[in-house]
Design a protein around this nucleic acid. Structure first.
Lengths: 257, 257
DNA sequence: TAGTGGTCTAGACCACAAT
DNA sequence: TTGTGGTCTAGACCACTAC
């Protein structure tokens, strides 16, 4: 069980543990051998073993519970973020609620709306002047009581002031999605654009989304358009542990060039 | 400059350095103070300082170069993976090439095709029997000489055997995209479905994509359909450092419910 | 050669969980 | 109380980079 350079010893220990996991010798939920035990087995100090375990944690393979032990991570059921939910018709609920219902998960939302001056980036996305009046609504979406998605939504008050949807979550259509809300005031969304990136969470995001180390988050920039006019834009942060993003692109028939 | 519990000392050092970065006091490309210097400033041992720097590395904020120093990460130019590129018509080049050209980046591809028996997961996606004959093509895509995207593509030989596209990268349309290639044998793609997730890379992926610690990868499962028949499926791994995924969803006009 | 990070230890003390 | 992980050190030696 001896381990020597050239490769770092903690890397070699991490390799062995990783292999035990990928080979199925250690299954999801199984505890890893204790650090003390491993340090004896490999003839290495405990800090070195700890460093090896940390490698697997940052890879998202292992979860450590202080005082209990380290465990092979189990995958939680996935919610799908499907762009097909952005539609008009039978389904006027917001995409998140619809997806959660489809996955048989109980969903709740908390929100808070303020008036604000459009910051530079938002102004650019809404094609308005920086500093123009906007509403800013922060949402936290919960699935089965766990926070799974954060978003900050911006709408130009020049469009919505004095209407029933001035405060997105109030009024007769307060619980509906963006498309239905704007339909209510005669503005008809024609398309939705999303840009998806992924990165490691900030400490704040990690806490709010309760993601463990080694789990990246999606960052989605979404804009609803009515023809040439952007009417809403949002920054969405979601745990990649809980979400997959799905979309279907039609390929119209026609003459190849 | 002293630092004490209750919070772990290395966490506090990481917090201070992170703040210097987010506040702009340290700008992209700037070197961090050396670990020796920091250990004197904070009255902490060098291993503790090193642990603090590691935190920022796994967050994707800092890049360490052995022997040179630690630096605030700079963002590289982004390639967009836009689903609008899956189309028929003027543009018959593969989506990757088209995107790279749009971003003014020189792209090259290496590939290798083998015959194989369909594994379980692929058979399910192509709606064929497990073990049925398929072609498996591995691609590595390069942007300006750097590998940025890996993919493994599967096509049922029951559909393509004996045709000009049996080996995807050979024949008269060998350099075209999936849609154009299947058009060539009279099979017309109607839609493309993608499922996007993100996770930390495996050590192999990290090496092949040359991603630094703290950078997650996209994992995309893509299937081209001709009506009710899946004709191609691929697993795509791409660096989130280099890519954002973009798509636009049409919201047809019509009667709200 | 000097400076930087990479790694490792032996032992220690602390915090948390289960019994 | 026992076992588990969390953290820290003082010093050491190694490997890489730049000059």
């Amino acid at each position: 069980m001896d381990i020597t350079p050239p490769q770092a010893r903690y890397e070699q220990v991490a390799d062995r543990l990783r292999q035990m996991i990928t080979d199925g010798e250690l299954r999801p939920g199984d505890p890893l051998p204790s650090e003390t035990y491993l340090s004896e087995q490999f003839n290495l100090s405990r800090p070195t073993i700890n460093k090896a375990v940390r490698v697997l944690v940052t890879e998202g393979l292992v979860l450590v519970e202080h005082g209990r032990g380290s465990f092979v991570k189990t995958r939680r059921p996935l919610l799908r973020l499907s762009t097909e939910r952005y539609r008009r018709g039978v389904d006027i609920t917001p995409p998140f609620m619809a997806e959660a219902a489809a996955a048989n998960v109980e969903s709740t939302v908390s929100h808070d709306t303020e008036k604000a001056d459009a910051p530079e980036s938002v102004a650019h996305r809404l094609r308005i002047e920086p500093g123009a009046p906007v509403s800013r609504t922060r949402y936290t979406f919960y699935a089965d009581g766990e926070p799974v998605q954060l978003s900050v939504q911006w709408e130009s008050l020049t469009l919505t002031r004095g209407t029933a949807i001035e405060v997105p979550e109030q009024g007769p259509v307060g619980r509906d999605g963006v498309v239905a809300r704007f339909d209510h005031i005669g503005i008809h969304v024609t398309h939705v654009h999303e840009s998806v990136s992924a990165r490691m969470p900030t400490p704040v995001e990690a806490r709010e989304l309760q993601v463990t180390a080694g789990t990246p988050v999606f960052h989605i920039t979404r804009t609803h358009w009515a023809g040439e006019t952007p009417v809403e834009t949002a920054d969405i942060t979601a745990s990649t542990d809980r979400y997959a993003i799905e979309h279907t692109q039609q390929v119209p028939l026609g003459e190849p060039a």
